[in-house]
Design a protein around this nucleic acid. Sequence first.
DNA 1: CATGGGATTGACT
DNA 2: GTCAATCCCATGC
Length: 204
Amino acid sequence: MARPEAAAAPAPALPAEFYARPVLEVARELVGCVVRHDGCAGAIVETEAYHEAEPACHAHVGLTARTHILFGPPARAYVYRSYGIHALLNAVCEPEGVGAAVLIRALEPLEGLERMRRRRGLERPEDFCSGPGKLTQALGIELELNGSDLVGGPIAIEPPPLGRPAPALIAGPRIGITKAAELPWRFCAAGSRSVSRPWPRRAA
DNA sequence: CATGGGATTGACT
DNA sequence: GTCAATCCCATGC
């Protein structure tokens, strides 16, 4: 069943079962995976986990118009507006009925660099996707993609490319939150220059 | 229906 | 280091 164009086919997206697991596992394993949208792609170098049981998670307030995506089936995108300006991309995790998601906080640009540069209006690739609001701008991800499928939808997340094994991880507290700020639910690729913020001197 | 608070970024002192 | 921009939506009257 070899398709003639198989050599150029992109890697298959991670299956829904990948996301239907404890959100901390998924947050760790997503580092090194590839996010693809609209001709651009980047390797995830930073994630954060959110779960309804802790107050920093939007789903903590229960089922509302804003959070129903988080409680829905896994492998969907949860995209919301932050500070009235930025769109932030999450992957909904855990079985349907559990409100949890992984925030994609930073990428290392891999493909579509010129398109990213145009959308970001900046020159240096390490500035394209080094933050959760930056990467959605670079990849052209907006609120209309909230609820879209991550398996076969406009946004795809693929396993780490061959020859690019999953990097060593560093864990630390999540960024920019005031509640449950002590939980070490932020995960970064060790040594990456594309993370949103440098690590404090304490290594993990 | 009015209000207040962000899972941020970029510009500025 | 500080701070404003800007809008969705949860909450409370």
